[in-house]
C-alpha cells in the first residue's frame, strides 16, 4: 500500500499511474468474474445482516418490513437454545482440536519411523480415505454400526456381552459427545496427519544423526527435536481451528445424528440451529438473529486469536 501512496504523490507520478493502468487493464478485466462472484456470494449477504433487526414480512418485502431493534435477539437469548448451541459449538470445537491434534502428531511421528516408502504411501492413503467421503455417506457408515440392529447392538452388545436388548443410540443424548468426537477424528485426522508429516520430513536429518551420536533414544529425539521443530506448524493449524470456533461442520451435526430430535441437547450447534429455524420452521427472525450472533462473535474470535499469536510469535500470525 505504501507503493501506491507514493505513486499518487506528484503529477509526474500520476501520469505514470495512468500508463500503468493502460498496461494493466487486462489484468483488471480478468479479475471481474471472480470479484462479481464474491460480491454476490459473500458481500451482498454480509449487507443482509440487517435482516435480524427486522420483523420480516414478505408482503412488505425485505426492505419494507418493520424495524424491531433487538427483539429477535431477546427471543433468542431468553430461550434455553442459545445457551445449549453456544456451549455445544465451543466445547465440541475444543475437543476436536485437542483430540485431532494429539492423534495426528502421534501418527505422523510413527509414520516418520517407517522406512519402506511403499508402506508410508499405503498408510497415508488409507488414513486419508475417510476425508474423501461426503458426510451423507459417513452417516450411512455410522448407521450400519448404531442402528437398532446395527453391528454394535447385534454383534457386540447382544452377541458378545450377552445382554438382551441393545441401546437405541439415536435417542440417547449422553452417548453423542463421544460418537461425534470419534467420527470427526476418524474423518479428519488423516488430513492433519499429512500436514504434520510433511513438516516432520522437512526437518534436517543432521539433527537426528548428531543426537544418535550422543546416544539419544528414539523418544528423546521425538521429545527434543521433532516436537519443538513442528511446533510452528502445529500452532498455525490450531490457530486456524480456534478462529473457526464459532462454526461447525454442518454435516457432522445434522447428517450423522440423522436429525434426531431426541438428541438435540448434545448435537445441536449454531449451524444446525440456524438451518432448522430457517428451512424447517421458516422462522426468519430467530434464524437470522442466531446467524448474526455467529458471524459477529466468530469474527471477534478470529481477530482475537490472531492478535494473541501476533504477540507470541509474529511469523505465525495469519495477518
Amino acid at each position: 500500500m505504501a507503493d501506491e501512496g507514493k505513486a499518487l504523490r506528484g503529477k509526474k507520478k500520476q501520469k505514470r499511474t495512468l500508463q500503468k493502468l493502460k498496461r494493466y487493464y487486462m489484468l483488471y478485466l480478468m479479475m471481474i468474474p471472480g470479484l462479481i462472484y464474491l460480491l454476490i456470494n459473500n458481500y451482498v449477504p454480509m449487507s443482509g445482516l440487517y435482516l435480524a433487526f427486522k420483523n420480516i414480512d414478505f408482503r412488505l418485502g425485505l426492505l419494507g418490513s418493520d424495524w424491531i431493534g433487538f427483539k429477535n435477539f431477546e427471543f433468542l437469548f431468553r430461550s434455553q437454545d442459545a445457551f445449549i448451541i453456544t456451549r455445544n459449538t465451543i466445547l465440541y470445537n475444543l475437543a476436536f482440536i485437542v483430540v485431532n491434534t494429539v492423534i495426528a502428531i502421534m501418527l505422523s511421528i510413527l509414520l516418520n519411523e517407517i522406512i519402506s516408502i511403499r508402506r508410508i504411501k499405503l498408510y497415508q492413503s488409507l488414513i486419508l480415505l475417510p476425508y474423501l467421503i461426503s458426510m451423507v455417506v459417513v452417516s450411512y457408515l455410522v448407521l450400519a454400526f448404531l442402528n437398532t440392529k446395527g453391528f454394535i447392538n447385534s454383534t457386540i452388545i447382544t452377541g458378545l456381552l450377552g445382554r438382551g436388548t441393545g441401546i437405541s443410540w439415536y435417542s440417547e443424548a449422553k452417548y453423542w459427545p463421544f460418537i461425534i468426537i470419534f467420527v470427526n477424528a476418524w474423518k479428519n485426522v488423516g488430513y492433519l496427519c499429512i500436514i504434520y508429516y510433511a513438516s516432520i520430513i522437512g526437518i534436517s536429518s543432521d539433527y537426528y544423526e548428531a543426537a544418535s551420536l550422543d546416544g539419544a533414544r528414539m523418544w528423546q529425539k521425538i521429545r527434543y527435536i521433532t516436537i519443538p521443530l513442528i511446533k510452528p506448524t502445529v500452532i498455525t493449524m490450531v490457530l486456524l481451528s480456534l478462529g473457526r470456533m464459532f462454526y461447525s461442520d454442518f454435516g457432522l451435526f445434522y447428517q450423522v445424528p440423522m436429525d434426531s430430535g431426541a438428541i438435540y441437547s448434545t448435537t445441536n450447534v449454531i449451524d444446525t440451529y440456524v438451518y432448522r429455524a430457517l428451512i424447517q420452521l421458516s422462522d426468519i427472525g430467530m434464524s437470522s438473529a442466531a446467524g448474526v450472533y455467529q458471524s459477529v462473535v466468530g469474527f471477534i474470535v478470529v481477530l482475537g486469536s490472531n492478535l494473541v499469536v501476533r504477540k507470541v510469535s509474529k511469523e505465525n500470525a495469519l495477518f
Binding site: 471472480g34 470479484l35 464474491l38 454476490i40 456470494n41 459473500n42 458481500y43 451482498v44 449477504p45 454480509m46 449487507s47 443482509g48 445482516l49 435482516l51 435480524a52 425485505l62 478462529g243 449451524d271 440456524v274 438451518y275 430457517l278 426468519i284 434464524s287 437470522s288 446467524g291 448474526v292 455467529q294 458471524s295 466468530g298 469474527f299 478470529v302 481477530l303 495477518f319
Partner: peptide, 19 residues
Amino acid sequence: FLVFFTMLFNGGLVPTYLM
C-alpha cells in the same frame, strides 16, 4: 484484501438463502 476478508467474515445462511 477483499478476497481474504471473505474468509474471516460472512453474512451466514439466512441472507445468502434469501438472496
